[in-house]
Computed example of a mutant assay.
Amino acid sequence: MKAITVVPGRPEQARVDDVGEPSPAEGSVLVEGRLLGLCGTDYEIVEMQGYGWPPPGQERLVIGHESLGSVLEAPEGSGFAPGDLVCGIVRRPDPVPCEPCANGEWDFCRNGRYTERGIKERHGFGSQRWRIEPEFAVRLDLELGDCGVLVEPASVIAKAWEQTERIFARASWRPKVALVTGAGPIGLLAALFGVQRGLEVHVLDVNDVGAKVGLVRDLGATFHVGDVADLGVMPDVVIECTGYGPLVFQLASVVAPNGVLCLTGLSSGTRRVPISVDQLNKEMVLENTVLFGTVNAARRHYEQAAAALARADRDWLARMITKRLPMEAFREGLRKGADDVKVVVDLRA
């Protein structure tokens, strides 16, 4: 069978290989790969030194962590049957395990010894067939179809909203206005989840090119471009999805009193900006502001994500997938075009 393999940090070594069938040691559920979503993490693994780790003793890594597949074989009692639509959970608990990992919260691993499919020391889902343990597979609504490839990124947002709501539980009031920064796949999903919660949602992006404007507006949300200081909006909650460091400090200054600012984006640069940290500290203390970061997801977040997508308009979700590539052309999807939202690889082509 064929698989997309890489030597992390050596882009000239990224290719489609003929590989052996997946080992039963990887899990008792055999899955036919349907689609693989590409994101910035995949770009960093392929293009940048120091990120992405093959399994111990191996040089190459099967890439891919945004998965969608159909079950081919599953043992009795596993909870799965041939034909089930599934996605795979990315992270695995560390072998110690630390207290969070022992309680199914590997997204809060404390010692960093977790592994991740397609990222850290485990082969990913970028192959025509893959195996998975039943406890790390999530069954999806068959009606989701190809939109099921959005479950993994949606799981990150499900966790972000869950943690945000836990913080708001400290007081009697609840948020009414949400701001999402960035209108990529993560930002659009964050906006979807905010609308599903009945919030007034605003989305800020650097430009108004491509499908994202229509996608935001068709949610009933408001699309903005420009500087955050000029929005004229005082959000109760901000979901930051760009990873642009200087923006974080601006957002901390515009969020409403008692507000929550959740960071989901990763900064890849080394930008330096002058800020008045004393003034920022004063504002956050006096206004009960909470700023926190979140990464990865536990099983319950995948289930929350799958449920949220099942409630969403299918046509709207399908419009998020703006480019499909055959396996041999996967490199084209690592650098998104201006009109792209979510790029996927068809593992059957």
Rank of each mutant, 00 (worst) to 15 (best):
K2M: 15
K2F: 14
V6W: 03
P8N: 15
P8K: 14
P11G: 13
Q13A: 09
A14M: 05
V16Q: 12
D17L: 11
D18V: 06
A25N: 08
A25T: 07
V29L: 10
V31M: 02
V31E: 11
E32Q: 02
G37D: 01
G37N: 02
G40K: 14
T41S: 10
T41Q: 08
M48R: 08
Q49A: 07
E66D: 01
E66V: 04
G69M: 05
S70A: 11
S70T: 11
S70L: 11
E73A: 11
G77V: 05
S78N: 01
P82R: 00
C87I: 03
G88V: 03
R91V: 06
R92F: 05
P93H: 02
E99Q: 07
P100D: 14
P100Y: 13
N103I: 14
G104I: 10
E105H: 11
E105I: 04
E105C: 08
G112T: 10
Y114D: 00
T115Q: 04
E116G: 03
E116P: 04
R117T: 01
K120L: 14
E121A: 08
E121H: 12
R122Y: 06
H123A: 08
G124I: 07
G124L: 09
F125R: 00
S127T: 08
W130V: 04
W130R: 00
R131T: 04
I132T: 00
E133M: 02
E133W: 02
E135G: 13
D141V: 04
L142M: 03
D146Y: 05
G148L: 11
G148A: 12
A154I: 10
S155T: 07
S155H: 04
I157F: 10
A160C: 13
Q163S: 09
T164I: 06
A169P: 00
R170Q: 09
A171I: 13
V177S: 08
L179Q: 08
T181A: 12
G182A: 06
A183C: 04
L188I: 00
A190R: 02
A190S: 07
F193L: 10
G194A: 05
L199A: 06
V201Y: 03
A211P: 08
V213W: 11
G214M: 07
G220H: 10
F223A: 09
V225S: 06
D236C: 04
V237G: 00
V238G: 10
C241W: 15
C241P: 12
T242I: 09
Q250S: 09
V255N: 03
A256G: 01
N258G: 09
G259N: 12
S268W: 12
T270Y: 10
R272I: 13
P274N: 02
D278W: 15
Q279A: 13
Q279E: 15
E283H: 13
M284Y: 06
V285H: 03
N288S: 14
T289D: 10
V290F: 11
L291F: 14
F292Q: 02
G293D: 15
N296R: 02
R299P: 11
Y302S: 04
A306C: 06
L309C: 05
R314A: 00
D315S: 13
L325Q: 11
E328L: 11
E328N: 07
A329L: 07
R331M: 06
E332M: 08
K336L: 15
D340C: 15
V343E: 07
V343A: 03
V344T: 00
V345H: 05
